[in-house]
Design a protein around this nucleic acid. Structure first.
Length: 257
DNA sequence: ATGACCGCTGGAAGCGGA
């Protein structure tokens, strides 16, 4: 079973790229972030024609998440992260697919920092950690996949010089990421590729793609029972180099059925 | 490196992104 995560940066603006990637990579599950559309504007029929059922949580011009599943309809289990009923941003959706619980998340960017947006990021992270602890205790096979907006270590970024004050590399979110892992979650790409450069994002600015000035901010975290089934993990880098590309590339894991 | 690049809304220029 192949499970992928892909920040598409507008699902309707990226539909051709998305369909081409689905056709080539053929993931059983695809977690999407930044779909940037209302619930009504989600391209359900087009994806269905391509063989993918979907659940989605849209919001209009920003944010928005979705889970696609090949040949089946995902069974929606959540459409927000618990812990703050006043939080209206569309950043979490969850569904069961073929016996695996899929959490698709879009963690707040947090810039500029310090400031209210950074506080919101850290608060959201705390809620995620609390909920991840609950999920872990169930013992169910779970993947928490998405755009975490955290560069875990300095080896996950091409250079620190121009990013040192950026919210993506600050000690607080990095410590939160470590704390999340320490609950018993496995960073799948790092587990199988401990020393490799595995960037998932290249800024549109400064010719970042052609210089390979990237960073790893999209992650797939596996619960214990799912981590034991992990057989492969990677990044579909080529997707970033295509015409009209998102600034992110898909990351994926393969787990034994 | 004050900058750039992209997508959205609205129908210009500003916001959000990372």
């Amino acid at each position: 079973m192949k499970i992928a995560t892909f920040n598409v940066n507008s699902i309707n603006g990226r539909l051709t790229n998305l369909l081409q990637w689905l056709d080539e990579a053929r993931p059983e599950v695809a977690c999407l972030q930044e779909i940037k559309c209302t619930n009504a504007a989600f391209p359900r029929k087009t994806l269905e024609a391509a063989g993918y059922g979907a659940v989605w949580c849209g919001q209009g011009p920003h944010h928005g998440v979705a889970i696609l599943a090949r040949d089946v309809d995902p069974i929606e289990t959540r459409r927000s992260l618990p812990g703050n009923s006043a939080d209206r941003e569309a950043r979490y959706v969850e569904a069961a697919v073929s016996g695996v619980l899929i959490g698709c998340l879009y963690l707040p960017n947090g810039n500029p920092q310090p400031g209210p947006k950074f506080d919101y990021k850290l608060d959201w992270f705390e809620r995620l950690i609390a909920y991840a602890a609950e999920l872990k205790q169930t013992g169910a096979p779970v993947v928490l996949a998405g755009d975490y907006n955290v560069v875990p270590t300095d080896t996950d970024i091409y250079a620190m010089r121009s990013w040192r004050t950026n919210a993506l590399v600050q000690p607080e979110p990095r410590a939160a990421f470590v704390r999340l892992l320490s609950l018993g979650w496995t960073d799948a790409l790092r587990k199988l590729h401990p020393d490799d450069v595995m960037y998932t994002f290249w800024d549109y600015l400064r010719h970042s793609w052609s210089r390979d000035a990237g960073m790893r901010i999209d992650h797939l975290l596996l619960s214990g029972s799912l981590a034991q089934r992990l057989v492969a993990a990677g990044v579909d880098r080529n997707v970033r180099g295509l015409a009209n590309a998102s600034d992110h590339a898909p990351a994926w894991v393969e787990v034994r059925d």
